[in-house]
Write a protein that binds this DNA or RNA. Structure first.
Lengths: 333, 333
DNA sequence: ACATAAAATGTAAGCGCTTACATTTATAGC
DNA sequence: GCTATAAATGTAAGCGCTTACATTTTATGT
């Protein structure tokens, strides 16, 4: 491995000068810069990033913690984050938290021990307290899809209340009155928010919220199926809104097994606009979660806060949008 | 940041001894090991992995290059790789190659410059020559889904010929005679292999291969739709096999637009068994690609070759399997 | 031409570890 | 008790860079 030392010898300058041309330091004359560049090329010199990190106390790496590395939701997010960083020669180290306190905490420590300069966290199980405490540490981080007032500046979120509202409103506008709802786990803030938005839309239309029409799921496909069964056996409804696409998928599969024709006999909506929603049958009407943009914004947050780069202004709250496909019967009644 | 130096002072031993207990070196008495451990705990000491890497010339990081970070195919693979490595305290740095020579080459250089100890590569555009040349360098790598005889030992692959064969055989056994085929791009070895397996099955059943029934796609959804249109307008067939699930999805959507009833009027098969295939309608019969297992095996390859860990024996060729769902009409004719 | 400031370059001390080698201490054999 | 050997510990030289500070060179004004 060729080192900076060999380059300096070939170019006939000192170590410091070579280092300066590498780091685009201004105080180097064009002549020496050229000499050094040529020497580098000739030797096929590649800086040792580890040594650079140690000396400069900056690893140029950022940690990315998501719940699951597979899964339709995280892929696009990771993709936009990676491309944003690589354009700046930063590398991203991935880790999975599996929505579990132990795992998430371990992963964060792992990433910090790895000298990540900054962290992008999509955590679900960790407590607010832990994260507030973490914010006092030396490794800056940005939180995706989670709002903690004490560290609001670190949070990039979707307006989930509005999303829930938009979904219900759409159903109501199509003439649906009896709208069942399969929620996410209520210990998750986003699940709460979506449900609240839902209730808000009902209230606006003077429709009392009926507990009978509510089933608490866990955001997983199976709970969508279970929720449908439960609701179908216990009450009547022409429409079903699920707090995410996964559950909507499960519910739809189950509804079809019950010989219901969609959307004629049952209208269904999801939430997230995960990429496969347009492939299921009928193509799912849902709420778009601009996860790509949010991932990119998180990356920009790090670029700006940690690496002091100039970036587009940081936006912390993103807006959901209705995506109309064919799983909702138009003009019911 | 507490350093090894402070630990050594508190414990009343030398730097070297502290380093030895960290690295589980045998030649440390239980008494001193305990002293050091206590000192570490007391100071909340965390080794600086960058310094460790520089001194030991081992970064404990492995680079993972995939074509696309999003995408149903890569997610599960990345997940199994990450979990395998994290269990061994190695970190994984991700990069995307976008099936493009420039990008792939850049990404590899990026990863090598980052001092990755080893690489897991899923590359499509790079030439065999480049990879053979790369194998002479100092960074070991394993190739996923690609076979190059000269460096066979680096390759972990699926038996694509057999996969293509299995798909065609299944269709034939259900009584289909006129089987259309939408292939992948023929400059890709796996696409060629799948098509060859297909032809092989036809030959075994004494059915001549009909060029009219072949359309060359590019593995993307849209080309599945285009392929279907082209074939539908030019010839007759009761079954369609696509070289991957993406294209099958596109073809199915398009077939439905043409008012065909599936599978009664058209049987369709895909390839890969990407997770959403069971959600589309009708649920897709396909060929399973054990990408999870293969990812884990690639990780084990690195663990074994690079880090000299003992692992389960390395398997380089994996077997595809038929996954029967409902997109193929049983007993046609 | 000369003093002075600014620009370019060099010197050397780290960054926090690992590890070869040297030294000290414990263990065993007689 | 004394030597030979093994085990435990210490010493110090790097790993390949960055950067504060010192020094030299060049540019500027008079």
């Amino acid at each position: 491995m060729t080192t900076i030392y060999e380059v300096s010898k070939l170019a006939g300058v000192s170590l410091a000068t070579v280092s300066r041309v590498m780091n685009n330091n201004t105080n180097v004359s064009d002549a020496t810069r050229k000499k050094v560049t040529i020497a580098m090329k000739e030797l096929g010199y590649r800086p040792n990033s580890i040594a650079q990190s140690l000396a400069s106390n900056c690893s140029n790496s950022v940690g990315l913690l998501v719940s699951e590395i597979h899964g339709p939701f995280y892929g696009p997010m990771m993709g936009s984050i990676e491309s944003t960083f690589r354009a700046q020669a930063k590398h991203v180290i991935i880790a999975a938290g599996h929505s579990d306190v132990e795992h998430e905490q371990q992963a964060i420590e792992f990433l910090i021990n790895r000298n990540c300069d900054g962290l992008i966290l999509h955590v679900e199980a960790l407590s607010d307290e832990y994260l507030i405490e973490l914010s006092k540490g030396k490794t800056p981080f940005v939180l995706l899809n989670r709002y903690i007032p004490e560290i609001a500046h670190h949070c990039i979120i979707l307006d989930n209340v509005k999303g829930g509202y938009l979904a219900a409103k759409h159903m109501l506008e199509q003439g649906h009155i009896n709208i069942a709802y399969i929620s996410g786990p209520q210990w998750k803030k986003d699940a709460q928010d979506r449900l609240n938005g839902h209730k808000q839309a009902l209230a606006e239309h003077n429709i009392p919220f009926n507990e009978q029409l509510l089933y608490h799921g866990d955001f997983m496909e199976d709970s969508g199926a279970e929720g449908f069964k439960y609701l179908h056996n216990n009450t009547q409804f022409s429409a079903l809104i699920c707090a995410n696409d996964e559950m909507a998928t499960g519910a739809i599969a189950c509804a079809r097994e019950s010989a219901l024709v969609l959307p004629e006999q049952l209208s269904v909506m999801g939430f997230d606009n995960v990429f496969f929603t347009r492939h299921i049958y009928p193509p799912l009407t849902t709420i778009n979660y601009p996860i790509n943009d949010m991932g990119k914004m998180a990356a920009n947050w790090i670029l700006s806060e940690v690496y002091k780069k100039t970036t587009p202004p940081i936006q912390t709250v993103f807006e959901p949008e209705l995506v109309v496909r064919q799983s909702v019967l138009v003009n019911a009644q």
